[in-house]
Simulated assay, not measured.
Amino acid sequence: MLQLFFAVAFSAVPLTLYIPPIRSLNLFVETIEDLLRQMAVHTIRTYPRIRFGFSRILNNLLHLAR
């Protein structure tokens, strides 16, 4: 049983190199949250315009198909 524990432990050690330390992760999460906040402002403004433009394109395509 002890050999199995050491085999699993030493095989998992290289995986810890891919996980950043918590102090770096906090900065990353803060940056992502800030980016999402800024994107939300622009999305709220542009969504109605995109929807209106898309509906006009669809209307034109449907009228051309008749």
Results as ranks from 00 to 15, higher is better:
Ala12Phe: 07
Thr16Tyr: 14
Leu36Ser: 10
Ser11Asp: 07
Pro21Asp: 11
Ile22Asn: 00
Leu25Thr: 05
Thr16Trp: 09
Leu27Lys: 02
Glu33Ser: 15
Arg23Ala: 13
Leu27Asp: 08
Ala12Gln: 07
Leu27Arg: 03
Glu33Val: 15
Thr16Asp: 04
Ile19Phe: 09
Ala12Met: 12
Leu17Ser: 09
Ile32Tyr: 08
Asn26Val: 10
Ser11Gln: 08
Ile19Val: 13
Ser24Arg: 01
Asp34Lys: 07
Ala40Gln: 13
Ser24Lys: 00
Ser11Ile: 13
Pro14Thr: 11
Val29Trp: 01
Leu15Pro: 05
Phe28Val: 04
Thr16His: 03
Leu17Cys: 09
Leu17Tyr: 14
Met39Leu: 15
Leu15Ser: 10
Phe28Asn: 05
Pro14Leu: 09
Phe28Asp: 06
Pro20Thr: 01
Glu30His: 07
Val13Met: 14
Leu17Gly: 09
Ile22Pro: 00
Tyr18Ala: 15
Ile19His: 01
Arg37Phe: 08
Thr31Asp: 12
Met39Asp: 11
Leu27Ala: 08
Ile32His: 03
Leu36Val: 15
Gln38Pro: 01
Leu36Ala: 14
Ala12Thr: 05
Pro20Gln: 01
Glu30Thr: 13
Pro14Ser: 09
Asn26Lys: 10
Met39Lys: 09
Arg23His: 07
Pro20Met: 02
Pro14Gly: 13
Tyr18Val: 12
Ile22Arg: 03
Arg37Met: 12
Val29Phe: 06
Glu33Phe: 06
Ser24His: 03
Arg23Asp: 15
Ile19Ser: 06
Ile32Phe: 06
Val29Ser: 04
Glu30Lys: 12
Leu35Asn: 12
Pro20Glu: 04
Ser24Tyr: 01
Val13Ser: 08
Met39Gln: 14
Asp34Phe: 00
Leu36Trp: 08
Met39Ala: 15
Val13Gly: 03
Met39Pro: 00
Gln38Gly: 07
Leu36His: 07
Leu17Met: 11
Gln38Cys: 04
Val29Asn: 02
Leu15Ile: 06
Asn26Ile: 11
Leu27His: 03
Tyr18Met: 14
Ile32Thr: 12
Tyr18Asn: 09
Ala40Pro: 00
Asn26Gly: 01
Leu25Cys: 00
Pro14Cys: 12
Ile19Thr: 05
Arg37Trp: 08
Leu15Ala: 14
Ala40Phe: 10
Pro14Gln: 09
Gln38Tyr: 04
Leu15Glu: 07
Ile19Pro: 05
Ile22Met: 04
Ala40Cys: 03
Ser11His: 07
Val29Ala: 07
Leu25Val: 00
Arg23Gly: 01
Arg37Cys: 10
Pro14Phe: 05
Leu25Gly: 02
Met39Trp: 05
Leu27Cys: 00
Gln38Asp: 09
Val29Arg: 07
Ser24Thr: 02
